[in-house]
């Protein structure tokens, strides 16, 4: 039985669109095609002039790019081309005359008068709408459920609206999938004279380089104005406004992403230039310490990978003929089988390779490198490195670079932003700070490692495991550091000779002072420790004075990287200021649903979603960070640090990381604030004061009774 071939109806729709576009090209926009042909001929003649000028050929050409267009564009223009040239020549001096300025001011004021004449009518309409129509919706009623108009809309109108929306969504998706839009766009770029303008510019550029003619420049400006008028005459004004808005939106999003990336680069410069290996962020509660710490950690992780990559590229330059991919594959194999797990094991691995080579001197023992024919060593002007010195450095760099895990260890969960692109050749890392879609699930993402403080202890340790090792390289984030380490006053009851680990006998501070030694490769250090605390004095002086303090002096929220958003801001602000009080009052007085409220709420919902997503993608805070030495000498340099919403607030870390631990204690009582007893009067009596379980009240009462 023959299988019925079902033809997708969307092909018919697109065929009709293409047919209509081509018909319009032939019968309406034919001037654009004639102009394009002229522009192409001008490119050839300009190339001839260019060749005659620079290569001394003798082509007989008439440069069309030096003259007015011969195409009949004057039917679109209010003036002839000669008149336009005369106007252009006289324009600059005429701009600076009082008569012209006064005439323009009169014109503008006439326009404003027209607008002001309509303004009272518009204001009156809004006022009547608010007072007569909306206020009637605020009368108290016991009605429940939906009104009849709303029911009709939801049951009859909305399904049709959704079907129409789905139809166009699928039509657009089909066009994108079959790559039909690019051909349609090409036809319309030709129809609207856009491509002619580009080609005409090319023709003029080639001519102008050969013959610097001001008259030709002016004539081409006239040609350009004529071409632009032909372009704008090709579509109705409303359609141009829509196209203009789409182009503006695309451009402003591009500039927004550029600005966010620039802010991120400034942050990286700040971290590399001003932060030390051990840092402490200090500020009041809810001032953004954890937020800043997380942001620094995410950027530092990318900095370490960038540094490793830079280091590897330098090794490539030292031995350009070395088969680096062979070494990389061996390092990846060693990582998989746990022969390499950290920097010391990477160095041991390279040393083992060196010994194997020197016992045999075969190419297979030196990763297939033709060491007899190519360079065996590199002189950097200070010392000479042989192949295996470079291999040892490279092995360490590549290990840190390729390991497919977060480089962050922390005492609260951080969702890493590093993404590895690996198509079987050299892997490349990028971050998902600004381009990723909104996050849905955080479970099973690339998360930070749970910090084991024993890795930072050179003395006594809390855990009983012997094979803990020490923290090698990476980014360590320690929130509430003062509560972990304590200061001299809080630790005074501990003794160094205690059997159990305590802040005095664990030599944590000593490790922080020498931490760079375990994380340095080729004079570059791959470790940073960032903590936060409310008061710097909460951390002992021994540790604090080797840190850099970062004071959160101020945080300016709600900056927007996307330009030209002011009108949307005003509209959104107006809608919320009017609608929010209305809906609260409405819900206070009634529970039912009405069509007008439904439509208004959905309009506000659309704007709310658009506004929130814009700030979510392109919003950022500016934190004023005051840098001070840990010795707290009072010299504070304030720098700006940029925290992008999409980078750091997209479920990247929990702002309430101890919530679950506190909840365990809270749930024991099975009561809440509503269950707590209240005072009977403005002055509490003895029984009520005793219920406070207060140290002061207990002591006070003891003295009063004594």
């Amino acid at each position: 039985m023959k299988k019925e071939r079902k033809i997708n109806y969307r092909w018919y729709i697109y065929s009709a669109l293409f047919a209509a576009s081509i018909a319009l090209a032939v019968f309406v926009h034919n001037t654009s095609y004639v102009r394009l042909w002229e522009a192409l001929r001008n490119v050839v003649s300009s190339a001839g002039v260019y060749s005659n000028e620079f290569f001394k050929t003798s082509f007989n050409v008439t440069p069309g790019a030096a003259e007015f267009t011969a195409v009949d564009v004057e039917k679109f223009l209010p003036f002839t081309l000669d008149e336009m040239l005369a106007k252009l020549e006289a324009l600059i001096p005429e701009l600076f005359t009082w008569e012209n300025f006064a005439a323009y001011m009169l014109f503008v004021l006439n326009g404003l008068t027209l607008v002001l004449a309509f303004l009272p009518i518009v204001v009156l309409c809004f006022y009547l709408f608010g007072q007569l129509i909306l206020s009637s919706y605020l009368s108290e009623t016991d009605k429940q459920g939906r009104s009849k108009p709303l029911n009709f809309y939801l049951c009859r109108v909305r399904p049709i609206k959704e079907k129409v929306k789905d139809f166009f969504t699928e039509l657009v998706a089909f066009g994108k999938e079959k790559k039909l839009f690019r051909w349609l766009a090409l036809i319309w770029l030709l129809n609207l004279n856009v491509i002619s303008i580009g080609v005409a510019f090319l023709a003029f550029y080639i001519y102008f380089v050969a013959c610097f003619s001001v008259l030709a420049l002016l004539k081409n400006i006239v040609n350009l104005i004529a071409d632009l008028i032909v372009m704008f005459a090709g579509l109705p004004l409303l359609l141009w406004l829509v196209i203009g808005y789409v182009i503006l939106d695309t451009l402003r999003k591009y500039f927004a992403r550029k600005k966010l990336r620039h802010n991120e680069n400034k942050n990286k410069g700040f971290i590399k230039g001003f932060l030390s290996l051990v840092n402490l962020i200090v500020g009041f509660m809810r001032s953004g310490k954890n937020l800043t710490e997380t942001d620094i950690g995410l950027s530092a992780e990318m900095i370490h990978r960038d540094m490793a990559l830079e280091g590897m590229v330098e090794q490539w330059h030292k031995l350009p003929d070395f088969p680096w991919r062979n070494l990389e594959k061996e390092v990846e194999r060693a990582l998989f089988f746990k022969e390499i797990v950290d920097l010391p094991s990477a160095r041991e691995y390279a040393e083992k390779k060196r010994k194997r080579f020197f016992s045999d001197m075969q190419r297979s023992k030196i990763f297939g490198y033709e060491w007899e024919n190519f360079a065996y060593e590199f002189d950097n002007g200070m010392y000479v490195e042989d192949v295996f010195d470079i291999v040892e450095t490279y092995t360490q760099y590549y290990m840190m670079y390729v390991v497919d895990t977060s480089l962050i260890v922390s005492n609260y969960a951080v969702r890493s932003g590093a993404i590895k692109n690996d198509n079987g050749h050299f892997p490349v890392w990028r971050d998902d700070f600004f381009d990723a879609p909104s996050i849905r699930e955080t479970f099973d993402n690339n998360m930070s490692h749970i910090i084991d403080y024993d890795q930072f202890r050179l003395g006594k340790r809390v855990g009983k495991e012997k094979d803990v090792g020490i923290f090698g390289y990476g980014v360590a984030l320690m929130s509430e550091k003062g509560k972990e380490r304590g200061n001299a006053v809080e630790n005074q009851h501990y003794k160094k000779t205690d059997e159990d680990a305590n802040p005095r006998n664990d030599y944590f501070n000593l490790f922080l002072k020498v931490i760079a030694h375990s994380a340095t490769v080729d004079y570059k250090t791959f470790v940073i420790v960032v903590g936060d605390e409310q008061r710097p004095e909460s951390v002992g002086a021994d540790e604090r004075e080797v840190s850099t303090l970062l004071h959160i002096c101020d945080r300016e929220q709600n900056h927007l990287a996307m330009p030209f958003f002011e009108f949307e801001e005003l509209i959104y602000s107006f809608l919320r200021s009017k609608f929010d009080p209305f809906i609260i009052e409405y819900r206070y007085n009634r529970d039912d649903g009405t069509l007008l409220t439904y439509l208004m709420h959905h309009l506000v919902h659309k704007f709310y979603g658009y506004y929130t997503r814009t700030y979510g993608k392109y919003g950022y805070d500016v934190v004023k960070l005051g840098i001070e030495k840990g010795t707290m000498d009072g010299q504070i340099d304030v720098h700006d640090y940029y925290i992008s919403n999409h980078k750091t607030k997209a479920r990247r870390y929990p702002t309430d990381c101890y919530r679950n631990m506190l909840a365990v204690k809270a749930r024991r009582a099975k009561t809440g604030i509503a269950d707590l007893p209240t005072y009977r009067d403005v002055r509490g009596d003895d029984d009520e004061m005793e219920k406070q379980n207060s140290f002061f009240v207990t002591e006070f009462q003891k003295h009063l009774k004594g």
Partner: peptide, 30 residues
């Protein structure tokens, strides 16, 4: 975005539109 920044930016756009409008107006007038 701060209100002062919104108003400041709108004034800048208005000035730019005013200037472009002036150039086009004079071009048409002469």
């Amino acid at each position: 975005m701060k209100k002062s920044k919104i108003i400041g930016n709108i004034l800048i756009y208005s000035f730019i539109a005013f200037t472009i409008g002036y150039v086009i107006f004079v071009f048409k007038m002469i």
